[in-house]
């Protein structure tokens, strides 16, 4: 296969993936609107009662993490398990499409949905809550938030590799909502008891949120290399788990394309 043709397959698969998700309003609407509604409530309505913009600024970062977490986890976790159950995955497996195109398409879909959520959150924060950040902060925050798609996709991949199509949505929800809560995405972490704060240290969403908060100087003051190291390590663990899961199941995504 020529590199040009391979590139086209990647793009084409990505396009179809986005279209597929868009045509699934049961998925698209909640992932796009849920972070926004939460932000409107906690960030804008409750957060702007006082004179300080601290609350809407703080929760902008954490709901941003929440916003990119959803598409990545659901797209990979639930989407993949579902496609395997319905046989779509098997069908794709019979085509000459490289396994990489399939993964690429899912990551792209997560990125695009994440970017839409981030843009919507930023616009709401700026215009409804009056949040103002330095130009570099807006860009850096967007960059950090979108980069978080990588570990969350890896986590989704691991779930999708192990869970069955029916149970995947339940499993993803079991991971998604508690993690968002425990990582301090809804309410700041320091409002929880110590035990729960210790749990947070194990969660990728916590470290991702701390990096996002670092951009606006509202983080807990831990070191950036530590957060990055945890995120990289956990991403590798998730990818390893996913590989094991696929090897166990059907070998798809493990096969080398020719």
């Amino acid at each position: 296969m020529t590199p040009g043709r391979r590139f086209r397959i990647y793009l084409l698969e990505a396009r179809f993936q986005v279209l597929e998700v868009l045509r699934e309003p049961m998925f698209a609407i909640p992932t796009l609107t849920f972070p926004l509604i939460l932000y409107l409530f906690f960030g804008v309505i409750m957060g702007t009662r006082g004179v300080s913009l601290a609350v809407p600024t703080y929760v902008l970062a954490t709901y941003g993490v929440f916003g990119v977490l959803g598409p990545a986890l659901f797209g990979f976790g639930a989407g993949l398990a579902n496609e395997r159950d319905t046989g779509v995955l098997l069908l794709k497996q019979t085509t000459p499409m490289p396994a990489g195109a399939y993964l690429f398409a899912k990551v792209m879909a997560a990125l695009i949905f994440g970017a839409i959520v981030v843009a919507a959150l930023f616009l709401t924060a700026a215009h409804a809550a009056g949040v103002a950040l330095y130009r570099w902060q807006w860009f850096a925050l967007a960059g950090v938030l979108l980069a978080g798609v990588i570990p969350f996709c890896a986590l989704g991949l691991a779930i999708g590799a192990w869970a069955g199509g029916r149970s995947a949505v339940a499993v993803v929800n079991l991971v998604f909502l508690p993690m968002a809560m425990l990582a301090g995405l809804w309410l700041p972490i320091y409002m929880f008891p110590d035990v729960m704060q210790d749990i947070a240290l194990a969660l990728p969403a916590y470290h991702h949120a701390q990096l996002a908060l670092k951009v606006i100087a509202m983080d807990a003051g831990q070191s950036v290399p530590m957060h990055l190291a945890v995120l990289v390590a956990e991403t590798l663990v998730f990818l390893g788990l996913a590989a094991l899961g696929f090897r166990r199941a059907d070998g798809f995504l493990m096969r080398r394309s020719r």
């Binding site: 930023f122 103002a132 950040l133």
Partner: peptide
Amino acid sequence: IGRSPTWLLIGVAVFIGVLATLPV
């Protein structure tokens, strides 16, 4: 295929445009 990169580029441009016009 020909259209998807165009849409992608437009999307990226809109995203950057949004970021660049946020208040400071």
